[in-house]
């Protein structure tokens, strides 16, 4: 039985964080998982059409599952700021 920990992630029976879609493991539960994901980091300006065009030097970070390419999480960030880190105890 896996336990849901976010809209896109579970903790599997081995105690690993894993993709809800394909089960690809992303490291031990309770630890940061984003480092194990594929990252696209692009200016928010060009993210999704003209209304985003006046965004400044802020980045849209998107974290993808290396197994199935599902978009697991996204955040906006200035380049110098760390990844947001969420910890769920199961």
């Amino acid at each position: 039985m896996s336990t849901r920990i976010s809209a896109s992630l579970v903790v599997n029976e081995q105690g690993e964080i894993a993709c809800m879609e394909c089960g690809h493991a992303l490291g031990p539960a309770g630890e940061p998982w984003k480092q194990a994901a594929r990252l696209s980091q692009t200016p928010l300006q060009g993210a999704a059409g003209e209304p985003y065009s006046n965004a400044a030097n802020v980045l849209l970070r998107r974290f993808f599952c290396p197994g199935c390419a599902a978009l697991l999480d996204s955040e906006t960030a200035l380049a110098e700021d760390p990844f947001l880190n969420d910890i769920v105890h199961v």
Partner: peptide, 17 residues
């Protein structure tokens, strides 16, 4: 105006500024 303030959830993009 320079940042999106309506964050997305579960991978969803933020709304436009």
């Amino acid at each position: 105006t320079k940042f999106s303030m309506s964050d997305g959830l579960g991978g969803g993009y933020p709304g436009a500024p």
